[in-house]
Design a protein around this nucleic acid. Structure first.
Lengths: 332, 332
DNA sequence: ATGAAAGCGCTAACAG
DNA sequence: CTGTTAGCGCTTTCAT
């Protein structure tokens, strides 16, 4: 039979309360007694019941990570950051996928709240006020990663997507490109929208004619969109909203007998591992995914422990990575 | 204040027990009363406390997935299979990384057992009897994925690694290759050992001189090992224990001015998404990772529900995928 | 510094 | 079919 706190108490000839105190490192237990309890615990092989503790304290040491799709190579890196940081702080981690579907997202949020998670890390696919209201009514600590929601005051860790996109497009323009198309992500994703805006504004500022193709952040979508972009626009350069799209685009460009970067330059966003394995290697905006995960957990921990000083957005630095997939337009 | 079961009972003018019954879909509650309770629940916005239920029943609806590294593109696919199946069955999913370190693995197993998970899905890096003993002493349902432990009778879902390796090497031999090197995985990983054995036996059976380089299942390791293999062995073909190694090998082959497959053929194992994006595309052994995840959850669910009929190993089919990275040796 | 006792919110016999 | 009554194993006042 599995021993409980009562058994330990009897064996050590103390009360349950005292056992509980040494379990929780309460300093006001005298050395000798503490020793006795510890020995009893040892001899019985006693392990406190997390479940019972949860009920008594009405909280858990679990946190949840809700993300679009762990199968997209960007997210595992972020998830590793989260897991490593969470484990260091003694949290156990739930992970769930939404497939960028706001209704699934909501369902999962409720499920996690129901599990009494201490807090939630959310990479959201929802932009609307309603989601915000439901989220706040949960009264569960929340930290947003990568994507804001309706500019509402949740803690968040992200990069400056607008600026990143502007830099990427500016880089292409600096290379002499004039026909630069954008492979955009889904319209319900905030970071995708910011990148899109950064693209558009930069194109307009340079008096260039923009062209946007909307897709779904996947490799297949990149392949498919790229075909249409070539047919309808005839670009010399592509700014893709993420690397998977960029990789798909490169694939289609090659399939048509065109070359990267000689015929069409391509730049992506995220800096997933494949970027440096592909041929040519893919220039991109590097996002510190691991660090985002780590930072988000810290913010969440602050909220949970109640040391949080008002909501804050942490903007981490991105970096434009020059690899082989972009070249000057006059090299053609 | 958050309503509890007592509040609902009062509002509906019934006992807590009755409320509990409708909560658990106990059919023996009369229609009219059930309606009343449901209405009360609705009006109060009552949500049962999972924590309290866990304590009362002494079990949770959580299961844990313990894997080497979610950052290796093979595992997210398996994890998606697990998550989708788990969600369908009403389980919430913990995920944790071991980095193939047996001591971390053990620590995580204990942590999860402590969380009173209903069961554990384990991709283990441990081969020894001791691990087995500790695992069985936990009395927590366990299903192994991909990798067995000391051939002990745990439920497991995997492929026939030995046979897969033999097929891959046989394929290379059929292409006319004689100098076929193997980039092997860590020695503490059962699947890696089986693949290694499959390679060795097939080489010996064909009277060929084998060459093995041991690494760590990573792209960087592939790059590094490949250099040594070229210098020390001079292969015309490579069988890598996983795709990341194969991709790294291709990278190094190219860096040295050699070509795949003209100078050296390469075949991997796993069939991660990137295999069909690379240039040349990578021939490999396809492993049904998603299906492994789904199947493993089903077995675990059976164990948890107690309908399990003795321990069983489910062997799923692999498939040799012919892509561009292998060619006949006489084409050189 | 330690103990006694009252819960935390739910489930599960057992009665009726 | 519904209610009564004990717990589940721990934490946490409140005394001592």
């Amino acid at each position: 039979m599995k021993p409980n706190i009562q058994h330990v108490a009897e064996k050590a000839q103390v009360s349950k309360a005292t056992v509980s105190r040494v379990l929780n490192n309460n300093p006001q237990v005298k050395g000798e007694i503490r020793e006795r309890v510890l020995r009893a615990i040892e001899e019985l092989g006693y392990r406190p019941s997390v479940i019972a503790r949860n009920l008594a304290t009405n909280r858990t040491n679990n946190i949840g990570l809700i993300l679009p799709d762990i199968t997209n190579p960007y997210f595992p890196v972020l998830a590793r950051g989260v897991e490593d940081a969470a484990r260091r702080l003694g949290y156990t981690l739930y992970i769930s996928n939404t497939d960028n579907d706001p209704s699934i997202e909501q369902e999962i949020i409720y499920k996690m709240a129901e599990q009494q998670v201490g807090g939630i890390l959310l990479i959201s696919s929802a932009l609307d006020e309603q989601t915000v209201n439901e989220l706040t009514s949960l009264r569960t600590p929340i930290v947003l990663c990568d994507r804001l929601i309706a500019n509402k005051p949740f803690d968040a860790v992200l990069i400056d997507d607008y600026k990143a996109a502007a830099e990427a497009v500016g880089y292409l323009i600096g290379l002499g490109h004039k026909r630069i198309a954008h492979l955009a992500g889904p319209r319900n994703i905030q970071s995708a929208e910011s990148r899109r805006a950064g693209y558009l504004d930069t194109m307009h500022a340079a008096q260039l004619d923009p062209f946007i193709s909307v897709g779904s952040f996947s490799y297949e979508s990149g392949v498919h969109q790229m075909g249409a972009v070539i047919d309808e626009y005839g670009p010399t350069a592509i700014f893709a909203a993420n690397d998977l799209l960029a990789l798909g685009a490169m694939q289609e460009i090659n399939r048509r007998g065109l070359r990267v970067p000689e015929d069409i330059s391509v730049i992506g966003c995220d800096d997933i591992a494949y970027c440096s394995m592909s041929r040519p290697t893919l220039s991109t905006i590097s996002i510190p995914a691991y660090q985002i995960g780590v930072t988000a957990v810290q913010l969440l921990d602050d909220q949970i422990k109640g040391v949080s000083t008002g909501s804050k957005n942490v903007i981490l630095d991105h970096r434009l990575l020059h690899r082989e997939s972009c070249s000057g337009v006059d090299q053609r």
